[in-house]
Design a protein around this nucleic acid. Structure first.
Lengths: 143, 143
DNA sequence: GAATATTGTTAATGACATGAACAAAAATAA
DNA sequence: TTATTTTTGTTCATGTCATTAACAATATTC
């Protein structure tokens, strides 16, 4: 039982450290990385959508986006149909970086999974999917 | 594979939200909560030890401790043998709060675990302990 | 056309965390 | 014993993460 608490805490911390490492490796604050990653497979996103998907206030998005734009990773165009809206999209450089990040993340996860045998992998996924579901249900109880 | 990535991300986020909830519930910033919890079963701790255990710069500890002291949760006494050192310890109120936090955390974890059957619980712990081990080994590779 | 919604920005605030510079005290070397 | 070095903790400047409130400009609705 306290073993469970401990394991979850350890796993949480590993994730946190990986995010930190990632941020250093790509020379980008973590929140900006996360923002960039939302452009995977998207042509245009608006600040509003980003705020919603990142679970963050829109004023926060203003900051992140303006930094990403000034780094040349995102471009901002006016929506031709609604001049309140700015359409955000990856620049070519942003696209390249996004792919690189994706490759890195994939490699990390693959390296972890590789250490499991095939049966273990199946059990792992099963256990994690139950855990995820149950943690979410408890979360909903709290809120 | 991308399922794995997704599950880990979800679980990570649940943890994060629980920490946030905890912080609001006890009216204490998360870092101060974490600091307080390190006093579980300890009479005295020094700033240096806290910095080490929290993986944080000592200047950060100065801030956290001074806030906890001003809230009346920690007391600070000079070390009789070395006047550079301040001995930090729980006040009675700090002790009470610590216990309350412990009860809350226990309840949350128990509620999650309760949703598993007995066999599932065994599999879960087994899977998590492998996962924790393997994530740590990958972490060490990165560093 | 006037009242209301939406979209995004700015400014103020607070939490989290680091590194560098520093003072005081302790340990060690000369 | 004096001088040097190390240890402990503080302060300050900086940067990141994030929120809320006030606001301007544009759309929508009545």
């Amino acid at each position: 039982m306290s073993e469970f608490q401990h394991l979850v805490a350890d796993i949480y911390q590993c994730c946190q450290e990986r995010l930190h490492y990632q941020s250093e490796r790509f020379g980008l604050p973590d929140a900006e990385l996360r923002c960039l990653m939302l452009f995977e497979g998207e042509r245009y996103l608006t600040a509003k959508t980003l705020a919603y998907r990142m679970n963050v206030a829109k004023s926060r998005v203003t900051k992140l986006v303006s930094s990403l734009v000034s780094r040349g990773l995102l471009a901002s165009l006016p929506d031709p149909a609604d001049s309140r809206i700015k359409l955000l999209s990856l620049t070519p450089e942003g696209g390249r970086l996004l792919k690189e990040i994706g490759r890195f993340r994939f490699a990390v996860h693959r390296t972890v999974l590789e250490q499991f045998s095939d049966e273990q992998r199946g059990e792992l996924l099963h256990a994690l999917s139950l855990l995820s579901r149950h943690m979410k249900s408890v979360k909903d109880m709290m809120a």
